[in-house]
Design a binder for these strands. Structure first.
Length: 585
RNA sequence: GUCUCCGUAGCUCAGCUGGAUAGAGCGACGCCCUCCUAAGGCGUAGGUCGCAGGUUCGACUCCUGCCGGGGACGCCA
């Protein structure tokens, strides 16, 4: 409907450009908005106000000319010029009625479009290190990333969902060492577990599996293990301690056995993460291995390209990237003085690879704590001659859990954090998915566990789902009463719907495609969440005010068409957010 | 210190990329089922949009500077 009016205005503009009222080379975006006040009609545009300068005419005069040049349309009931120069459109009842019919006609496809023209877009999200289970912070990235991806797909982009698996690097070595130490403990060795090691119970479990498979065959004595290993904190340096242990374990086990320990941890935890996300309704097209970058020498290739471009230099034994040339605060190390490449180096290679894969747009969903990281990644891509406008980094703030009005304390230290799985078990997938995307991503999220669990209208998820279930319930009642719904009869009598509740429901239903479009293009699923709440409110109000299963079958079917259309839109909208639409509650 | 996000009703937040008289929910108060789920609905009260400038026909929205709060600033990943 919005696009139709925009087309009409486009014609009008072309006419005025043709007769010289407006400059012919003018490129204008027609801004059309829903009116807040019914006395201003249904849609309004400020076109005449924005164009009065190039037209060198008064806004209201120009508005008059624009209106005069509008092609006629069966859906436009009235066009008025108001205020400083707004052009207000009032649509005919037919226009709204056709909208209802289109929803029933299109069903699940209602709200989808081909705006994206199947342009390939990559959305990379979650990408948590496989060093432990996903926690509630990752959950927000998962729900948000999945919703953004689904929204983009809904408006016609060819979306590629990807998880970057950090299966290389020091943190994974620390995990491997932690697993092996737990294994040694099961063999009967006694020592103080490193302060920097991973202490979660899951590390025990992996160590136990290792012990089951190999018995004491891979055991080494504590004395042997700690030879030449620097002391741990507080006397010594915890980083040097863990690095020393890793090196010692690597040499004692040899490459093959070490790799098995390493992979035991990696595979177990990654499998857990995949299962968790799958149960959360989050699916990926690709799990991209960091290790594969190294194996294909892509990291070396990236460093070589930066070298050729002249942006690398040596200092203090390390290799630095001159990111300050591109606005970063300071230069960054890509190869450490010990010869190890930094995480940043593989990230350059990864992003280079992403762009080479031909995505028109690459979207990274990161935790907001990585925000300082954005300039250096963009700097690297710029140095490599890539178009950094193809990369969007969306930063997601952490979620803070509240229970009984109190903040739930969490710390990643010593494994004391709430996992995503625990959250899902406590409040359910639907509430978790919805609550996570209720707020703008860059905003701190106060996640009220009690509210998420409550089955009342206070809880927006239940409120919306209940609207859906109520429509289903009406249909069940209809059948019990032996009534039949005839969609065509309903369609032919939509003109009987003249209650104000019916009108506002129809108007809101017609907004849905616009909401999906805006939510997708702005990467703001919360817009859809708020819309659905509003729509459900319209429905509940209507439900309370009027009986649907009335004796007059013409009116009854018209009303059923309207509420079935409502059900469809709620189901479609919830679906895009990964929330179910139950038939009964 | 630098960067970044935030500041709108008592609380939690919207505000459609600059529009017309600033909106919801919760909480408070007062109401509504011989009726398709009261897991619902209606009404009332509640605001110097942090402060001060600027940009213009027009600012909650954009710019600058303050004030207040969260977060980030490693040869970690």
């Amino acid at each position: 409907m919005k696009h139709l009016l925009q087309d009409l205005l486009q014609h009008s503009l072309a006419t005025l450009q043709g007769d010289g009222t407006l400059p012919g080379d003018l490129e204008v975006e027609i801004h059309l908005e829903r009116t807040r006040d019914a006395s201003h009609g249904d849609f309004a545009t400020n076109l005449a106000m924005t164009l009065c300068k190039p037209a060198r005419s008064k806004p209201r005069d120009l508005a008059g000319k624009l209106v005069a040049a509008l092609p006629p349309s069966e859906f436009v009931k009235r066009v008025e010029i108001a205020g400083p120069g707004f052009i207000n459109f009032t649509l005919t009842a037919d226009a709204w009625h056709q909208g209802i019919d289109r929803i029933l006609e299109q069903g699940e496809a209602y709200g989808r479009s081909n705006l994206g023209e199947q342009l390939p877009v990559q959305v990379e999200f979650v990408s948590a290190n496989p060093t432990g289970p996903l926690h509630v912070g990752h959950g927000r990235g998962a729900a948000y990333g999945a919703a953004v991806a689904d929204l983009l797909a809904a408006v016609g982009f060819n979306v590629h969902r990807e998880y970057y698996v950090n299966d290389a690097g020091r943190q994974m070595d620390i995990l491997a060492a932690s697993v092996y130490l737990r294994y040694l403990e099961l063999c009967g060795e006694e020592f103080v577990f490193p302060s920097n090691g991973y202490k979660g119970d899951y590390v025990w479990d992996i160590g136990a599996t290792l012990h089951r498979n190999h018995g004491d065959a891979w055991r080494v004595s504590t004395d042997e293990l700690y030879t030449d290993v620097p002391a741990d904190a507080p006397e010594g340096d915890k980083e040097a301690h863990i690095d020393g242990l890793i090196a010692r374990i690597q040499s004692l086990l040899g490459p093959e056995r070490y790799r098995e320990v390493f992979d035991a941890g990696l595979n177990e935890i990654l499998a857990n993460i995949r299962q968790d996300l799958k149960e959360f309704g989050v699916e990926y097209d690709e799990w991209f291995s960091e290790r594969s970058l190294t194996e294909q020498s892509l990291v070396d290739a990236a460093i070589a390209r930066l070298q050729e471009a002249g942006y690398l230099y040596q200092q203090d034994g390390a290799t630095w990237f001159r990111s300050t040339d591109f606005g970063d605060e300071k230069d960054r190390v890509v190869v450490r003085d010990n010869g190890q490449k930094t995480y940043f180096a593989s990230d350059i290679a990864y992003h280079m690879n992403k762009l080479e894969r031909g995505f028109a747009r690459v979207i990274d969903v990161w935790g907001a704590d990585h925000h300082g990281y954005v300039p250096r990644v963009k700097a690297a891509l710029q140095a490599l001659g890539d178009d950094i406008d193809r990369l969007d980094v969306l930063l997601v703030q952490f979620a803070i859990l509240y229970r009984g009005g109190e903040k739930v304390q969490m710390s990643t230290r010593s494994g004391e954090f709430v996992t995503l799985r625990e959250l899902r078990q406590e409040v359910g997938n639907d509430a978790a998915r919805f609550f996570y995307v209720m707020r703008k991503c860059e905003q701190h999220l106060d996640f009220d566990l009690d509210l998420a669990k409550s089955q009342s209208s206070d809880n927006p998820v239940y409120y919306i789902q209940y609207a859906h279930a109520r429509v289903c319930s009406v249909l069940r009642q209809m059948q019990e009463k032996g009534m039949q719904w005839d969609r065509a009869r309903g369609r032919d009598h939509l003109h009987l719907l003249h209650e104000s509740h019916e009108q506002s429901l129809m108007i809101n239903l017609s907004r849905y495609p616009e909401v999906v479009e805006a939510a997708a293009l702005n990467h703001e699923p919360h817009q859809l969440a708020h819309y659905l709440r509003d729509l459900a409110n319209d429905f509940h109000t209507y439900y309370n005010a009027h009986q649907f299963l009335v004796g007059d079958e013409k009116l009854r079917d018209a009303r059923l068409n309207l509420i079935l259309a409502t059900r469809q839109v709620i189901a479609n909208g919830l679906g895009l957010l990964g929330v179910s639409a139950p038939e009964s509650m």
